[in-house]
Every structure is written in structure tokens, then in C-alpha cells.
């Protein structure tokens, strides 16, 4: 059992991590590098005099292959980590609720993971372009983890709870951290163009969704394979 869980998560994590990293290098990392130009001050959008205006254009990936290789490596670690949590949850659902684990169902698991781990925390703490000043790290990490846990519990109540009262309770648990609210600064400090930050948020969320659905699909696929053999 343990072997099947670990190997399923590792294989799924490698596949999803590689696909996600590839998409990040095409879509997300160029925006991140463009944001760093404003962080370092080599590009200015908000001039002291005159209207805010700056040229659009990412600087290209450049020759920092070491930096980009570790980005790929950490994507594999992150997706494998999330994959381990997902196969454990799949196994629990199968043992206690008789949920069938199939690749198709895995897509729903992946979407639920995306909602809990990416979308819900992003509602309060939008993914940050480098150079975006934000509140103290520790309270943000606490709110981020708390929101993920609450959203997971809420989704589980909706998916596996019996009766509409449990489902409504799930909705309340999901909304609670959003009502409490994420830690924010009292002032806006961003130096990058708002359009660039917005594009970074939508693109990083969109391609994380692809990564998560891929992860769910392959976690379930490999788990089902391992049980058959």
C-alpha cells in the first residue's frame, strides 16, 4: 500500500511538474523577469513627473540556465509533495466512502486541489509579481495555510458529507477565512504596471490549474494501475 502511494505520487508529480514547468517558462517566467526590471529600477513605470507609461516586453529567459534548472527541480518537488497529499486523500476516500479511483475521477480531484491550494488563497493573497511589497511574511503564511486547510475541509464536507446541512457547513468553512481576511499593508507600494501584475496573476493561476488537473489525473491513474498488479 505504502509503496503504491509513494510511487503513484512520485510518477504523477514528475509528469505534472514537468508539464507545469514547461508552461511556466513559456507564459509565467517571462512576466516574472519583466517584473524584476521594475523591482530593480532598471525600468520605471511611475515617473515622478508625467503620466505613468512604459514599454511592454519581457527581457527573454537569458543565459541563467542554473537558475532555470533549479526552478524546474523545485516544481518537481512541489508537485510530488502535493501528489503525496492527494494520493493519501484518495486512499482515505476509497477506504471510508468507497470512492472509485479512476483517471477520469482524478480530474475532479485535481480541480479540487487547484481550488483549495491555489484559487482560494489567491482570493485573499493574489500571486505576487517580484517587487510587490506585502505584509509581514509569517501572518501571510499562517493565513495561507489556514485558508488551504479550511478549503480542503469544506470541499471534503461537500463531497463526502451526508445531507445538505453538511454541504452548507462546507460552504461556510470555505468562506470563513475569506471573511476573516488576509493580512495586507495599509498602503499600495507596487512599482510595476498594474496590467503586468494582473497578467501575472491570471497566467500563473491558469497554468497552475493545468498542472493540478494533470496531477490528479496521473495520481489516480497510477494508483489504479498499482492496485491491479
Amino acid at each position: 500500500m505504502t509503496k503504491n502511494l509513494l510511487s503513484s505520487a512520485v510518477f504523477a508529480g514528475l509528469i505534472a511538474g514537468l508539464i507545469a514547468a514547461l508552461l511556466q517558462f513559456v507564459f509565467v517566467i517571462p512576466l516574472l523577469l519583466e517584473g524584476e526590471l521594475y523591482e530593480s529600477g532598471s525600468r520605471l513605470h511611475f515617473h515622478a513627473d508625467g503620466t505613468p507609461q512604459s514599454d511592454r516586453g519581457a527581457p527573454g529567459l537569458g543565459g541563467e540556465w542554473g537558475r532555470h534548472l533549479v526552478t524546474i527541480g523545485f516544481n518537481l518537488v512541489t508537485y510530488t509533495g502535493y501528489g503525496l497529499l492527494m494520493v493519501a486523500a484518495m486512499g482515505l476516500a476509497r477506504d471510508h466512502r468507497g470512492t472509485a479511483i479512476t483517471a477520469q475521477n482524478g480530474i475532479i480531484w485535481g480541480l479540487a486541489g487547484f481550488i483549495a491550494v491555489q484559487l482560494a488563497p489567491a482570493v485573499g493573497l493574489p500571486p505576487e509579481l517580484p517587487g510587490t511589497p506585502a505584509a509581514e511574511l509569517a501572518p501571510r503564511q499562517v493565513w495561507w495555510i489556514g485558508t488551504i486547510l479550511a478549503t480542503m475541509v469544506g470541499l471534503a464536507l461537500i463531497a463526502f458529507g451526508r445531507g445538505m446541512v453538511m454541504h452548507l457547513l462546507g460552504l461556510i468553512v470555505i468562506l470563513a477565512p475569506q471573511l476573516i481576511g488576509a493580512p495586507h499593508l495599509d498602503t499600495f507600494w507596487g512599482v510595476a504596471p498594474p496590467e503586468l501584475s494582473a497578467e501575472f496573476v491570471t497566467q500563473s493561476l491558469g497554468f497552475a490549474a493545468v498542472g493540478w488537473v494533470t496531477l490528479g489525473y496521473f495520481c489516480a491513474f497510477f494508483m489504479a494501475q498499482g492496485e491491479d498488479s
Binding site: H68, V70, T71, T78, L85, E128, A208
Partner: peptide, 29 residues
Amino acid sequence: VGLGLLTVSGMAQATVLHDAAHDQRHAMA
């Protein structure tokens, strides 16, 4: 094991780890 991997790739603030994981952390929010 999964939480351990995520602590390393996403949460730990040791400078070397933070700098190496920086782009991935931003991309994964």
C-alpha cells in the same frame, strides 16, 4: 513525506533555499 517536501520547496526561509526556489515559489503563489 508530502508536507516535508512542500516545506522545503515552498515555506523554508533559509537564504540558499529561498533564492533557489524563488522563481518557482512566485510561479506557484
